[in-house]
């Protein structure tokens, strides 16, 4: 039994293997991009709007509102990154109901890649907001003694992100595989349905946590720049 789609190789050329993870990622990407393009190519700015456009507007608006709820000043700034994280993971997980499909999020390589993106995005957004010096100073907060712990925290939360998503998705797939061998029909269906819910929740958790990490960097800036605001709140 294959635990990771990485092991499912379609094509290999000079040591470079085209495995199921990459192929299904492309499938998900194609689905997302073509679906978006099909709708946004006929966008209406008037009063009558197509159902698909409404659906996309609802999705985009909801993601933006969620980002704003986490505390970002400019949700539009984070929307492409966080929104894509959510949409990619959610689509990849929901497609698990399709027979023969292996969710790329069930591969530790994918989740690590996404976690690395978050790991890089946090300092990038933070530096974009406050500059390199400001970002580096945040590692010395509240005291320089905390520097090693801050670095460990940065690394551990990235690992946690990657492993959480991988573990949830992979376990769902594995459990379904085991249940198919134990109980032929009923339980796997229930578990698939449960897997849909779990997949969406995981997508939400991953995206929100990424935003929380990015947002916490912004809030650090607010604390340092506007200490009176926090004092009055105490």
């Amino acid at each position: 039994m294959e635990i990771s789609p990485d092991a499912w190789v379609f094509y290999e050329w000079r040591g470079l293997s085209l495995n199921a993870t990459i192929v299904f990622t492309w499938v998900v990407m194609a689905l997302l991009v073509l679906g978006s393009w099909a709708v946004t190519a006929r966008l209406s700015e008037g009063e009558t709007v197509s159902r698909w456009q409404v659906a996309l507007e609802v999705i985009v608006t909801t993601i933006r509102d969620q980002i704003a709820e986490v505390g970002a000043d400019q949700p539009g700034r984070y929307l492409p990154f966080i929104g894509t994280l959510f949409l990619f993971i959610a689509t990849a997980n929901v497609l698990a109901v399709v027979p023969g499909y292996q969710p790329p999020t069930g591969s530790l390589s994918t989740t690590v890649a996404l976690a690395v993106c978050v790991l890089v995005a946090v300092p990038l957004f933070s530096i974009g907001e406050r500059g390199l010096g400001g970002y580096l100073r945040s590692y010395l907060q509240p005291t320089p003694l905390m520097l090693p712990f801050n670095i460990i925290g940065e690394a551990s939360r990235t690992i946690a992100l990657a492993v959480r998503l991988y573990g949830n998705v992979m376990s769902g797939t594995v459990i379904v595989g085991i249940l198919i061998s134990v109980a032929p029909f009923f339980f796997p269906v229930v578990m698939q349905v449960l897997g849909l819910l779990t997949g969406l929740i995981q997508a939400y958790i991953f995206a929100i946590l990424a935003m929380v990490y990015i947002g916490s960097a912004s809030r650090t800036r607010h604390k340092t720049e506007n200490p009176s605001a926090t004092n009055t709140g105490d």
Binding site: S109, A113, V116, C117
Partner: peptide, 15 residues
Amino acid sequence: MQIDWLTVVAQIVNF
């Protein structure tokens, strides 16, 4: 639990 770093890089690019 294994990480294929080539796949990781590819996924980063894909993302």
